[in-house]
């Protein structure tokens, strides 16, 4: 009996967004099917993996991931170049962690200098992230946006408390913008609407529905992503037809499972591979639920996810 595949086609389509400059440009989104469903419709853009670097040495990262970058993490530009040239990063995510009032309170001017140095040194797209301090981020990201003017970089994250300033800065400097809300499809939709009502082009917007780590809320991010993607495709909701970001590394590398030594918890097995698996499983689950852009830390985890993505293309 020949089998008739129950294919599903949708009227909605995700905006295709190019980030970065020249040869380094990366295209996100553009698909009109659920993640990796190229067997039933167009899925042009492949998800991209950005490596996370920080403007200050990663003192708060656990040893297993900090060690990998020991020789380069003293300077953010050296660190980024290593990720680009030796690790094959599709993009660099520069987290301006040192601007946080509790992490050194680095000034907006100095943060902007780091951004300029970074842009001069790398070819792949740059994603500029604040320290997730809503108030400080407004001043830091405004200056950072000026430093990245017309480089087609990505800046974020615009949140409910500060979106006006950050979206205006992204608009004035012709940058792509990440809009983040907390694990709720309606909040994501509302923030996207507020930002586009300011005149911001929806085709320059990336939605971060808020990430999480395996065993620490993964199912919330997973399902919010699936719901956002279904709303965008099946209900053809233009306010949700944005590529999605999963900012994985920062959630994964603070949980106990990526830090507790095997000697303390023998039933958890070897720490090195456990930590890598934690990041890779979290990231690949979000790919399956709809992420177009991942921010990751460990090169082994990113490498495993790349292999997984390549296999997902084999149909």
């Amino acid at each position: 009996m020949p089998f008739t595949p129950p294919k599903e086609s949708f009227s909605g389509k995700i905006c295709e967004i190019g980030i970065g400059r020249g040869d380094g440009t990366v295209s996100l989104g553009g698909q009109s099917v659920m993640p990796f469903h190229s067997f039933e419709g167009a899925a042009p853009g492949k998800p991209a993996i950005a490596f996370e670097v920080q403007d200050v040495p990663p003192d708060d990262w656990p040893e297993t991931v900090k060690d990998v970058f020991r020789d380069v993490s003293g300077d953010p530009v050296t660190w980024a170049a290593y990720c680009q040239d030796s690790l094959g990063a599709d993009a660099i995510a520069l987290r301006l962690a040192g601007t946080h009032p509790d992490r050194g309170d680095i000034s907006a001017e100095r943060a902007a200098e780091t951004v300029s140095r970074m842009l001069a040194a790398i070819k792949v797209p740059l994603i500029i992230l604040g320290s997730n301090h809503a108030e400080k981020d407004t001043s830091v990201l405004v200056r950072a946006a000026e430093a990245a003017k017309q480089t087609n970089s990505v800046i974020g994250k615009a949140q409910e408390a500060n979106y006006k300033t950050i979206a205006a800065a992204a608009m004035a400097n012709d940058l792509k913008l990440i809009a983040m809300s907390e694990l709720d499809i309606n909040l994501s939709k509302q923030l996207n609407i507020l930002i586009t009502q300011m005149g911001f082009d929806r085709e320059k917007l990336i939605t971060d529905p808020m990430s999480s780590a395996l065993s620490y809320g993964l199912e919330y991010t997973y399902s919010v992503m699936e719901r956002i993607r279904l709303a965008a495709l099946a209900q053809n909701d233009p306010t949700l037809q944005t590529p999605m970001l999963a900012d994985v590394g920062m959630y994964v590398w603070k949980v106990k499972e990526t830090q507790a030594p095997e000697a303390d918890l023998p039933e958890w097995g070897e720490l090195g591979r456990r930590g890598v698996a934690w990041e890779a499983v979290t990231a690949s689950a979000f790919l399956v639920s709809g992420a177009d852009l991942l921010i990751m830390r460990h090169p082994d985890a990113a490498g495993a996810v790349k292999k997984f993505m390549a296999e997902m293309e084999v149909q």
Partner: peptide
């Protein structure tokens, strides 16, 4: 079925 792998997959 190594332990590190089990922990990740059981959790997932």
């Amino acid at each position: 079925a190594e332990r590190w792998k089990n922990l990740a997959l059981f959790s997932l």
